[in-house]
Computed example of a mutant assay.
Amino acid sequence: MQLEHLCPKTKGKLIFTHLQDKPSYFNKNGLDKDLLLTIALNGEGSQEIIINGMAHEFPSYSIIPLVSAQDYSFEKPERITAWQYSRDFYCNMDSYFEISCFGLLFFGYRGSQFLKLSESDREKFTALQQLFIEEFQTVDTIQTDMLQMLLKRLIILTTRLAKEQYLEGKIYEKEKFDLIRQFNILVDQHFKTEHQVSHYAGKLHKTPKNLTRIFNGFNYSSPSQIIQDRIIMEAKRLFTYTSHSVKEIAYELGFRDAGHFSRFFKKATGLKPSDFRKQQ
């Protein structure tokens, strides 16, 4: 089944997909302006998920959060339960930073974040799935509020799993971890024009050296690697979904010289831009 709800006030969108044979909101994000944040749950049996051109094993009974800029596809989408929503459906910037739209799930981590579900976790998520189905079928004036409340519960449950599994054995320092989140948000907003760590460090009132030390303390990718990954992610989307030339894409991503951009892309991906485009 695939259920959709549109918020009457903001026109924000929420889609709940459960074991749908051919889900229309999966696979490619493309360049659609209505990009969706996704929390995807895989059922029984592992499968392959392709994220930004790279294959990963999606273990059985596990969850992965996917940001709107990521291009992804599932080997067996009919086994997936997914919650997808636009930021204007649920983007509570005033709430505690961990569960906002710019919270830990989507901006506190980088890379492929697969979260394992224990037996008790599965029961919680199964119960939550049923509540979503019931609420989608209850059409009244407070339906949006109820769906937002259920979505907030989903985000809280998933965030707790992320903290337990990715911060295990580490000292959780709210201020330092929030600094990582703020850095990721700034990179997402300015990566096309600002490529240097020093720019973002200055915005956060830190030196590049101090910023790197904080990231290392969480076994996190370096600040420079995060900037590079975001540029490459966008470059791949542009090569896949537009016919823009290498020069045009280089310029859009803040490179004055197409040759410099091509070398940057090949060093990061192992492929020339032209070879990458041929594979799409």
Rank of each mutant, 00 (worst) to 15 (best):
F107Q: 07
I249K: 02
T158N: 11
A69E: 14
S118P: 09
I142F: 14
P77L: 07
S222F: 15
K76D: 07
F239W: 11
S120E: 00
L37H: 12
M233Y: 14
Y166W: 07
I64Q: 14
I50R: 14
I49V: 00
K174M: 13
T269V: 07
H190I: 03
K266T: 10
K174N: 14
D32M: 00
F136T: 03
D229L: 12
E57M: 12
D229P: 13
E248V: 03
Y25N: 12
K116G: 02
K33G: 13
R230C: 01
F218P: 05
K116T: 02
G254F: 01
P223V: 13
I99C: 00
Q148A: 09
Q165G: 10
N92P: 03
P223H: 13
P77W: 03
R181E: 06
K11L: 09
A268K: 00
C91R: 05
H18G: 14
F261E: 02
N219Y: 11
N29V: 02
G30N: 14
N219L: 10
L154T: 00
D188H: 08
I133R: 13
E48D: 14
C101W: 15
Q130T: 09
Q279Y: 08
A162N: 11
T193P: 01
L186K: 01
G43C: 03
T242D: 15
D229G: 12
Q225K: 04
I231C: 07
K206V: 00
S86E: 05
V197F: 11
S198Y: 01
I80F: 01
Q70H: 15
I180N: 06
R213Q: 09
R79Y: 14
E175P: 04
S274A: 12
K22W: 08
I214G: 04
E248M: 09
Q189K: 08
Q228Y: 11
N210V: 04
K278V: 05
T242C: 15
Y85A: 04
K124I: 08
I142R: 11
E168K: 05
F107V: 07
Y96D: 15
G43M: 01
E168M: 11
S118Q: 03
W83E: 11
M1Q: 01
D121I: 11
L31C: 02
L167R: 00
I63C: 11
F58N: 14
T138R: 08
R110P: 14
T144I: 07
S118E: 10
F218W: 01
D88W: 00
N216T: 13
L151C: 02
P223G: 12
I156R: 12
R181Y: 00
Q225M: 05
A258T: 06
L115N: 04
N92H: 06
L105N: 15
T126Q: 12
I232P: 13
T207R: 03
I185W: 06
N29Q: 11
I15F: 06
V67N: 09
N216H: 15
S46I: 09
Q196R: 12
T138Y: 07
G53L: 09
D140W: 06
T207Y: 02
L179E: 12
T144C: 04
R230Y: 04
Q20R: 02
Q129P: 00
Q129V: 04
Q47Y: 03
K192I: 02
Y61I: 08
L19T: 10
E44W: 13
K176D: 10
R153N: 13
L105S: 14
Y25D: 07
Q130P: 04
F97W: 12
F264I: 01
R263C: 13
K206H: 08
Y72G: 09
L14Y: 03
I226E: 04
K247L: 14
G53A: 10
R230Q: 07
